[in-house]
Nucleic acid binder design. Structure first.
Lengths: 259, 259
DNA sequence: CATATGTTTTCATAATACGAAAATACGTCG
DNA sequence: CGACGTATTTTCGTATTATGAAAACATATG
């Protein structure tokens, strides 16, 4: 009598519903009415109302004078406390700002989650035209510079498994969609220490990415510059790699292991 | 048979429990075991396990190889999309960084929530010793510079009600704990356009704060510098007020209304 | 003022989340 | 290596809990 369960495990209905309400609210830039939220989530109005009331009590949601709902501050409070990443972000910020000023382009910090990279921090320049990435946004590994490095670091078997799972969907006509092509690209990128994204995620956008390692030697994040393809300069590679080394060092990474 | 309900309204058990699990996880800097989480929240292990599994499916929580739990990226994703405040933060950041460089001290952006101010953005200097405020942290209105301005802007009746509700708890020996004292202080602060905090929240910490207004003329946030009291300079007041005016203007506030 | 539209509350009911206990996994020490 | 202690995960009958239809209430609209 229920819809197919996305992942077969035992789900908790209310939590799934609460999550979809939060998503629905997030989708709108302005506070949203109960009516709309109920419609968007397919919930009965009274159910939606009750769940929202509970979310309000827990400060995940706020309600304004007109009974319109918006996200609550508890989310911010929890969001900035994300394990470990909080350190990377704090440490990375000055470095990112420096790069942004040097290049005059957007600099992003990403981490891997599943088969995606997630943007966790950004520094954007004051130019009219620059590449904008929303914090929390995601992109598949094989269409981003940092993602390809992460795949390379994960090894050939992992790349095969990734390709199998995702089928390497194309985002632009430059997206790498063949397994041999991806393996070659990731390996090469890893070997030279940086990766390029030549309009593979979006036309007219080019990136350069490097990996960040933490104290235990694991890949903990990725640092990248994104620019309109015509403005991207390969001269940035050196600065970017240097910044990556600095950041990794500040996280306790020592390069010795390589030799 | 149940515990007293904190707020008499109809609560949803699972959501309350999920929220307290999230809080428990947030309390620890490192990933936490199920055992501990169950103990902290007073939940049955199997219940905690089930709820956590659901939170994981919804990406609010992650589980590492050792079955230890940490906060998930969905929180970040949602946290940065907070209505409206997202604008203030984005617009304020460069201004805050400028002030930080000018003063060499921590600059904070706060908003009011209930009887507290909540820190929503900060810019910290590179000095060894500086005042640290965690984003999402809270402080009562009457012990902070910005809070006193907000009280002043809310009017004398509101101050009375606030005093009644909170009883004006003392945080240091400088905290204002009398109603007449608070009314006088808030009124004066509002009139001159800035407020001081002279070690009222924490000994050795002094602040200067100003209000930020949005396009509709409402108080939307507060901007403040925090410094070790010995380093705080009243000369900063002008710069800070100017920054506040700039920020308010960028949010669409026009001063004309005052006259 | 009447009508329409949206929000909030109520309440009987069925479905849902509960938790004790069993099963499984993981270490650790003799 | 095997046996014991500890933590995690799964199972399953049951009672509690969340559900949603409908009624009451609030707010806009013509």
């Amino acid at each position: 009598m229920n819809q197919e369960d996305t992942s077969q495990a035992t789900r908790i209905q209310v939590i799934d519903r609460a999550a979809s309400l939060l998503d629905a609210i997030a989708r709108y830039p302005d506070p949203v009415s109960l009516k709309i939220l109920a419609a968007e989530t397919g919930l009965n109005v009274s159910t939606a109302h009750r769940i929202l009331a509970s979310l309000i009590q827990n400060r995940f949601v706020e309600k304004d004078a007109a009974s319109h709902y918006r996200l609550g501050l508890r989310l911010l409070q929890l969001g900035v406390r994300l394990h470990g990443n909080v350190d990377v972000r704090a440490i990375a910020r000055p470095i990112m700002e420096d790069l942004r000023d040097r290049f005059g382009e957007s600099v992003n910090l990403t981490i891997r989650e599943g088969d995606s990279v997630v943007y966790i921090e950004k520094a954007t320049p004051n130019r009219m035209i620059h590449v904008q990435q929303l914090i929390g946004a995601r992109a598949p590994l094989h269409v981003t510079a940092v993602g390809k490095l992460m795949l390379g670091a994960a090894g050939e078997d992992a790349i095969r498994a990734y390709a199998q799972r995702t089928n390497l969907p194309a985002y632009t006509r430059n997206t790498i969609t063949t397994l041999p092509g991806l393996i070659a690209e990731c390996g090469q990128a890893l070997a030279r220490g940086y990766a390029l994204d030549n309009e593979e995620a979006e036309m007219d956008v080019g990136c350069i990415g490097v990996l960040i390692h933490d104290g235990t030697g694991n890949v903990s994040a990725g640092l990248s510059v994104s620019a309109p393809i015509a403005r991207r300069r390969l001269e940035w590679v050196e600065d970017l790699m240097e910044a990556g080394r600095t950041l990794s060092a500040q996280l306790g990474y020592s390069v010795q292991a390589v030799f």
